[in-house]
Every structure is written in structure tokens, then in C-alpha cells.
Amino acid sequence: MNGIKQVRSRTVVLPIDDIDTDQIIPARFLTTTTKTGLGKSLFTDWRYHPDGTTRDDFVLNSPDAEGAAVLVAGRNFGCGSSREHAPWALLDFGIRAVISTEIADIFCNNALKNGLLPVIVGADDHRWLVEHPGIEVTVDLETQSVVLPGGRRIGFPIDGFSRYCLLHGLDQLGFLLENEPAILAFEQRLI
């Protein structure tokens, strides 16, 4: 994985609360055995009519959304199943950061492991972002802040270890493997 310092993009706003992983990527697409190619099925049932035609009233289908890499979503984004296909689908579609007031635990973990930035902001800042769709922002991981047009910054919390791994493109499995002696010692205590 390459290191990530920041994501600069227009925002696309989907202000629905409790967007679950079954909406992000419905279960019928989980029969895949790879991580790629899920972007075309992202939010399928919201993006397309049953006959497969595009729903013009869905925000990700608007011309303004094209190329947008920052999704501003309602509270408790990514609740539901543990499927890592959800961040895989978002990334494959081109989303690099999700901003919300609350992001579900497992989704947040999965996102961090794949280089999708989970950005949690306060209710007032969130409301402002929802009311200003399509603005150009920079999600800056180094300073842990979202930089708005005009330079105002909104800070966000992120687990320090995950941040370090993301900035340097380090992979957490490598870190665990280096701890082999401690794991072995623990197992020997068990016996």
C-alpha cells in the first residue's frame, strides 16, 4: 500500500443516517473472490432502477459527483455487516475519505486497513458540510484536519497507530509478524 498524506477533492453529500453496508454493497455481490471491480455495484439499489437504468435523482449519479473522492454521509455510516467489500467498493468507485459524525466500528477498522480515511467531525461542522455540497476540501492526514475553502480547518480524531501506518504505507500484518517471539511466548504460557 502506498502512503497517504491527503485527499483533495470536491465533496459529494449523502445526508442519510445509518447507511448500512447492505446499501453500500448488497450481499448478492459478495460471491466475488477478489477485492476489485466492486465499484460498479456500489449503492446499486439506490443508483439504478430495477430495470438497470440510472436513477437521475441519486446524488452519486449527478454530473457534479463525477470524480468526487470525499463522501459526506449521515450519522453512523457503515453500520451492519463486517463485509470489507464495503470499503473495497467505495475505493473502487473512487471515494478516498468518508466524513460523518459517527462511523460504525467494524467499517471504520476495515476502512483504515484499506486506505479509506474515516473522518469524524462534530455536528455543527457536519451540518455546514451538508449545506455546502460540492465544495473543494483537503482531508489532511498529517495535521488530522479537513481544510475548507478559505483555509478554515476542522480537526478530526484518528487512531495514532493506523495514522502512522497510512502515512508511511505500512501494513499491519507485517507489524504483527514481527511480534512472532511475543506470540510464541504467549502460546507457551497457555500450554
Binding site: S82, E84, I106, N109, L173
Partner: peptide, 10 residues
């Protein structure tokens, strides 16, 4: 508790 696929690998 539930985990994602990367963690399944871990």
C-alpha cells in the same frame, strides 16, 4: 466479535 477480511488474514 466480527472482523473484516484483512483481519481474517491477520
Amino acid at each position: 466479535f466480527g472482523i473484516g477480511t484483512t483481519e481474517v488474514g491477520h
